[in-house]
Deep mutational scan, measured.
Amino acid sequence: MTFKLIINGKTLKGETTTEAVDAATAEKVFKQYFNDNGIDGEWTYDDATKTFTITE
Rank of each mutant, 00 (worst) to 15 (best):
T55E: 06
T18S: 04
M1H: 14
L5D: 01
K10T: 14
T2A: 04
L5Y: 02
N35S: 13
Y33M: 13
I54K: 02
K4D: 02
E15I: 07
D22P: 01
T55Q: 07
D46G: 00
F34R: 07
L12H: 13
G14K: 15
Y45L: 01
A48R: 10
L12F: 15
N35F: 12
V29A: 08
M1S: 12
K13W: 13
F52I: 02
F52Y: 04
T17M: 10
A23C: 08
K13F: 10
Q32I: 08
T49P: 00
T25A: 14
A26R: 01
D40S: 14
N37A: 14
T49V: 05
E56H: 05
F34H: 04
Y45G: 00
T44Y: 08
Y33R: 05
A24T: 08
D47N: 08
A24Q: 11
K13L: 10
M1I: 14
E19I: 14
T44F: 10
V29G: 03
T53P: 00
V21W: 11
F3A: 01
D47V: 09
E19V: 15
D36Q: 11
D22F: 02
T55V: 11
G41N: 06
K10F: 14
A20N: 03
E15F: 08
K4Y: 11
F34Y: 14
Y45T: 00
D22H: 02
Y33A: 06
G9D: 03
A20T: 05
F3K: 00
I54V: 15
T17A: 08
T55P: 01
K28N: 08
K50P: 00
T51R: 01
T53Y: 08
T17E: 07
T16H: 15
E19L: 14
T51V: 05
G41W: 15
T44G: 06
A26N: 00
W43G: 00
T53L: 05
A20I: 02
E56T: 06
T55S: 06
E56A: 06
N35D: 13
F34P: 01
T17F: 13
T25E: 13
G41Q: 05
G41M: 10
I39K: 04
F52W: 06
F3V: 02
D22N: 07
Y45P: 00
V29N: 07
K50Q: 09
Q32S: 08
T2P: 07
F52A: 00
M1K: 12
E19M: 13
G14I: 15
V21C: 08
F3Y: 12
K13S: 13
G9W: 12
Q32A: 12
F52G: 00
F52Q: 00
T2Y: 07
G9L: 15
